[in-house]
Amino acid sequence: MIPAPFDHITPVTLDEAIRALTSHGEEAKLLAGGHSLLPLMKLRLASPKLLIDLSKIPGLAGIRQEGDKMTVGALTTHYQIESSELLKEKCPLLPQTARVIGDVQVRNRGTIGGSLAHADPAADLAAAMLALGAELRVRGAQGERWLKAEEFFLDLMTTALSPSEILTEIRVPVLSGRCGTAYLKLPQKASGFALVGVAVWLRADGGLCADIGVGVTGLGAKPFRAVRVERHLRRKRLEPALIETASAEVTLRIEPLGDIHASAEFRAHLARLYTYRAIVEAARTAGISLTKAKGK
C-alpha cells in the first residue's frame, strides 16, 4: 500500500523533463495519470528514486484534427477520449475502446500516453493503436522521432522508447468513407484487463472490404497487429466463411500467455473467436450485409 520514498519534480517544459530524465537515468520515472505506475510502486514492484510529473507541462493533453489525421496528446485521459464528440465522429474506434478501460475512476485519471508507455500486454488502447496504424511522437535528448505502433511494442512491458525519451502525442487517421469499427474484449473478471481484446476498423466499398486494420491485446507478451488476418480480407467480398478462415490466422506465430484466468489454449481460441466477432461487428457498422453474402 505504501510506496518507497522518492523525490518528485514538476517540470514546466518538455526540455526540462527530458534533462531530468537524462541525468537520472533508470532511477527516474515519468508520472502522467499514475494509474499504471503508482499501483506498482504501492506494491514496491517499482521503486524509482525520482518521479518526473508531466502534468504541469502545457500542451500535452488534448484532441484535435490536423487534416486527415487526429492528434491526441499523451496526457489526454481515457475519459476525454471516451467522451470526445470529435473522435466519435472522426475515429470512433478510440472512444469505443477507451470506454471499456478499467472503471470510471481509472478512466478519469489514466492517460493514453501512460498506458501505451507502460505496455501492459493486456492494455485495451494498444489494440486500437495497432488496428489504426497509429503514429507515436517521441521526444528525447537527441530530438524528435515518430514511431509506428507496430514498432513501439517490443515485449512484455517493454517499448521502443529509450530511457530518456518521452511519448508526447499519438496520431491516428480520420476514418473517412464507409468505415466500420469495433472493439470487443473478454475482461478478466477481477482486474477488468482484457483476457483477449480485438480492435478492428474496416472500410467498405460496396460489399468489398477495401481496407482493414486488426489489433489484438491480451493474447501474447505484447499487443500486435494481425497482419495476416488483414491481408486475408483486404479487397475481398466479406462472407462469414472467409472471415472465419481469416480469423483463424490471428494466432499464427504468436505464443499465447496462460494464467489462472485462461490457459494459453483458451486465449488462442478466444482470439480467433473475438477476431471473427469484431470483424463481423465492424462490417455491420460499415453497412456490409453479411447474411446476404452468406446466402449466395
Binding site: Q188, K189, I260, H261
Partner: peptide, 23 residues
C-alpha cells in the same frame, strides 16, 4: 461463477489480490 482462492502446488496464492480474486 468467479471466486476462488487458488493455491499452486508450492502453496503460493495465485489469486492474492483483488486484481486476481474476482468479487
Amino acid at each position: 461463477l468467479y471466486e476462488e482462492v487458488v493455491y499452486d502446488e508450492n502453496g503460493q496464492i495465485l489469486s492474492g489480490s483483488l486484481m486476481d480474486y474476482a468479487v
